[in-house]
């Protein structure tokens, strides 16, 4: 069902990849809990962009928009729970430094 807009999807895809790499880099490199959450948000925004592009390319923009609205709502829930956990961490160890939290070995 791909129409002539396939090239457009590629352009959006490139931006998605750039945003995704930014997000992953942020999660991997940072030593701060809040920044890790910001990295997760950037990743989600990349996916949101991809879904909208996919919906536009396949002429299903209404479906894609409703998906994105749902996605935003769900993501707010996840991030607020994550912020709650970060707050709990801060209460326990008194710092937002990830390197201070190495009690479990994986």
């Amino acid at each position: 069902m791909i129409n002539d807009n396939a090239n457009l999807f590629l352009i959006f895809g490139i931006f998605t990849i750039i945003l995704g790499v930014c997000g992953f880099y942020c999660i991997m490199v940072t030593k701060n809990f809040i920044r890790a959450l910001i990295g997760l948000e950037i990743l989600t925004k990349a996916v949101t962009l991809l879904i909208i592009a996919a919906g536009y390319v396949s002429n299903r923009i209404a479906l894609a928009q409703s998906m994105v609205i749902t996605l935003i709502v769900v993501e707010v829930v996840v991030i607020s729970v994550a912020a709650g956990i970060v707050f709990g961490v801060f209460k326990q160890i008194g710092s937002l430094n990830i390197t201070k939290m190495r009690n479990l070995k994986g």
């Binding site: 069902m1 791909i2 999807f9 998605t16 995704g20 989600t44 990349a46 996916v47 991809l50 879904i51 592009a53 996919a54 919906g55 390319v57 396949s58 299903r60 479906l63 894609a64 998906m67 996605l71």
Partner: peptide, 10 residues
Amino acid sequence: LSSIAILLMY
């Protein structure tokens, strides 16, 4: 989700 987006396109 990114997989779902690509599958949605197809």
